[in-house]
């Protein structure tokens, strides 16, 4: 009796993420989900896909390590259904993602704390507010 599935994990640098996902889309991989884990100094983001060529249907996972404050490119260009997970990752963990096709700007998941799943929520909120103020300053000039 088959009891276990055999997932495989691959650690990828942030700059290679867009290329890898575009390659997966060409090879017709199915998209499963996106999730984040809060570590001591950074966050780990896991993108899970299913390769249609495998015989037992096991999943392929790409892990990307994202330090605080670094922006991540969105994969909704290739997989439009990912906007739910990217908005949720931003609303719960504070990871900045650029280029989501439907970007709610932090209003998708309505909870009372900002970034509740990330222990460094206070610093992230502070730096996000500073970045916004700087942007507005340059726009006004």
């Amino acid at each position: 009796m088959r009891r276990f599935q055999n997932p495989s994990f691959e650690y990828v640098g942030l700059e290679d993420l867009a290329e890898t996902v575009a390659d997966f889309k060409q090879r017709d991989f199915k998209f499963v989900q996106i999730c984040a884990t809060a570590l001591d100094e950074s966050c780990d983001v896991l993108y899970a896909f299913v390769d249609p060529e495998t015989t037992d249907g096991s999943m392929t996972g790409i892990m990307v390590n994202v330090p605080d404050g670094v922006h991540v490119p969105s994969i909704t260009e290739w997989y439009p259904a990912a906007f739910v997970f990217e908005n949720e990752t931003h609303d719960l963990f504070g990871i900045q993602i650029d280029g989501i096709n439907i970007d709610f700007g932090g209003e998708f998941y309505q909870v009372s704390m900002t970034f509740p799943m990330n222990p460094r929520a206070a610093e992230l909120e502070q730096s996000a507010r500073v970045a916004d103020a700087q942007e507005e300053g340059t726009d006004n000039e």
Binding site: T37, V84, E88
Partner: peptide, 22 residues
């Protein structure tokens, strides 16, 4: 994801309805 202790480091559950929102 395990931690070495009896507490897990992370447990993620993704349900079918969130995939179907699009």
């Amino acid at each position: 994801k395990g931690n070495g202790s009896k507490f897990l480091a992370r447990m993620r559950i993704r349900t079918p309805t969130s995939q179907n929102i699009a």
